[in-house]
């Protein structure tokens, strides 16, 4: 479905991605893992078109999209869900969701999808007239995911859906990501919450310093000592274990 070939990209003169290769096939959940400043978000922006490629090529369903504008990529079915803080606070929940379906002309199906989003996230239905600036962190995260669903994506890219959320809320959101994937949408989820992401996903990529360091089946990555070594970092893993024991 998505082919990323030797992609170099960054901001101005600062090159962050230094030759990323990735191949995502139809269906299922793929996760992209990495610490802060390793290029995760940059890669998402390169795929959605918010930043231009310096070198390399991206194809989607066999079409070269490297030079398409972001809104043209949305029309092809690549939809990026931004981080939770980036809803439109001065718009109501429903306006945000309607905005998500901006490219669509099929009114009836759009309406049905709106209901589907409300079924996935009942709290959004309760708050649909409320300004999205008044929602809690978890609710805003549900809103931006719902907004992404409204675009009728073939591939949905999520940027750290678990960031700064309580574990219970993260579980609910991850369960819904799973439901979206089951409905036939391919999902690429960027995460820092490694363990959760690898349980959720079937396949994983680990990015570091702008290149893909390790890739593989998620079940294997969890057990792979080099993943722990290179990315989880002994100390971080120990700390999280320590926290869990308390």
């Amino acid at each position: 479905m998505l082919q990323v070939n030797d992609v170099h990209a960054g901001y101005g003169n600062l090159k962050i991605l230094r030759g990323v290769d990735m191949s995502i096939s139809d269906g299922g959940i793929v996760t992209l893992l990495g610490g802060n400043g390793t290029g995760k978000s940059t890669l998402l922006k390169a795929i959605s078109g918010l930043i231009p490629l310096m070198k390399g090529q991206i194809t989607f369903d066999g079409v070269d999209i490297s030079n398409l504008k972001p809104h043209e990529r949305v029309r092809l079915g690549i939809v990026q869900v931004t981080q939770a803080k980036e809803a439109y606070p001065a718009m109501s929940v429903e306006e945000n969701l309607v905005l998500g379906a901006y490219t669509r002309k099929d009114r009836e199906a759009t309406k049905a999808d709106l209901e589907r989003v409300y079924d996935f996230f009942p709290v959004l239905r309760e708050r649909r007239k409320q300004m999205s600036g008044t929602l809690s962190g978890g609710e805003v995260q549900m809103l931006v995911i719902g907004r992404g669903m409204m675009a009728k994506p073939k591939m949905l890219m999520l940027d750290e859906p678990s960031a700064a959320l309580a574990p219970k809320v993260v579980l609910e959101i991850f369960a819904n990501i799973n439901r979206i994937a089951k409905s036939g949408v391919t999902i690429l989820v960027v995460e820092q919450n490694v363990r959760m992401a690898l349980i959720l996903a079937q396949y994983g990529y680990i990015i570091r310093d702008g290149i893909i360091l390790i890739e593989g089946i998620a079940d294997k990555l969890i057990k792979d000592p080099s993943v722990k070594e290179s990315f989880l970092g002994g100390s971080v893993a120990d700390v999280s274990r320590g926290l869990n024991n308390k």
Binding site: S48, L50, T103
Partner: peptide
């Protein structure tokens, strides 16, 4: 009009909504 408001608030997200910014 909704698209105009979206663009006014944040151009990157407007792009990601499929709006021709």
């Amino acid at each position: 009009g909704l698209a105009v408001r979206a663009v006014a608030h944040n151009k990157d997200i407007a792009y990601l909504m499929g709006i021709n910014v």
